[in-house]
Computed example of a mutant assay.
Amino acid sequence: MNCIEKQTCERPAYPLAKHSIRRQLSFAVGAAALFLAPTSAHAAGTVAGTDIVNVAQATFDGPPGDPPVTIDSNIVTIKVDELLDVTVVSSDPGDVATSPGSTAQVTTYQVTNTGNGSEAFTLSADTAKPGDEFDTTFEQIILDTNGNGVYDPGVDTIYTPGTNDPVLAPDESITVFILSTIPASANDGDRAEIELAAVANTGSGTPGDIFAGQGDGGGDAVVGSTGANDEDSGFFVVQTAEITLVKSATIVDPFGGATAVPGSVIFYQLVATTTGTGNLANLAITDDIPADTTYNAETITLEGAPLSDSASDADAGSFDGSSIAVALGTVPGGQTRTITFQVTID
């Protein structure tokens, strides 16, 4: 007997039975579940638009000698609604070092669709957050086209709201860059906050708000725990360094005194002092040999250690016939370097 897709089933009388057997069953929707369609697990759960299908079954004994009878309930189908959720996280490991007047300075973010449906997101930048020491000038939002996580000028795509809003599948992320100009007035140690926000194009609001019929896959769209609107900030820190250079001279004359006569030796000392939180790159100190004096060969020192006059060897010193030079490389702020050399008055 076939009672499939009927909510009740009546068994007819059998000739050998002492009396007719009549049994009737009623089923509440969802009393037991038989899933006919597989689902996929994601961070936000089952993918929007998935049909959850279930059928209940009942089995009872037939007349003696007959096999058990099984009947199915009606099929109940529920379409999974879209959950609207997004997260924004700064990708910078710390404050991004910069300097006054710099352009195209980059802060980096990760935007992730934590909902369960494909969704487009509108992006916006705020470079005038209260509470920091200075505001940058917003230049552009850039989408990481090649997915390498690094801003590549001319390769990555300039973002225009409403034109190329990123469309992300469930659990998909995209790297986003904000480009800023640092004001020339920014001071050493000053910080600036740069915020990126993302909001679901379908809608946002209070968790649980419903946008009827607007969900991915044909169901409703429901605002998730993030409000379908999230933001996070990166920070710039200005790092500058300055240098002062002080030169002094000590004289030793041929008689053991300190007169400046022919034959007297002049001991020059150069003290370079850096200040600030930044670095001075490729710092080099040079000094011309004064007229009416002769450089005393191989007398250059750095921090008391002798340097050679040759420009072709590995150390930092050199003499080109008219001036001495010492290449100090990159020197952080807050340090000093002391150089000495000698000349003889002609």
Rank of each mutant, 00 (worst) to 15 (best):
T181F: 09
A241S: 15
P306Y: 08
G30N: 09
R11Y: 11
P153M: 04
T338Q: 11
D313S: 11
L16F: 14
A311P: 09
Y295F: 15
D220I: 00
A120Q: 11
L302I: 08
V167S: 13
A200F: 01
V155A: 07
F211Y: 06
I210V: 15
S99D: 05
P38L: 11
I324R: 03
A272Q: 04
N116F: 00
V76C: 01
D152E: 14
T301L: 08
V222P: 03
Q140K: 15
T112W: 00
T286Y: 09
G154D: 05
P332C: 07
G256E: 06
A41S: 15
A31D: 06
D135E: 07
V246N: 11
V76P: 00
S308H: 02
F27I: 13
A186E: 02
G257A: 12
I300S: 01
A44F: 03
D320M: 04
R23V: 13
I324H: 01
Y14P: 00
F138R: 00
A258V: 12
P183D: 02
T112K: 08
E119H: 02
L307G: 02
V252H: 01
A272M: 12
N113Y: 01
V265S: 01
F138T: 01
V326M: 06
D190K: 05
P161D: 03
N279S: 13
V265M: 02
D72H: 08
D232H: 10
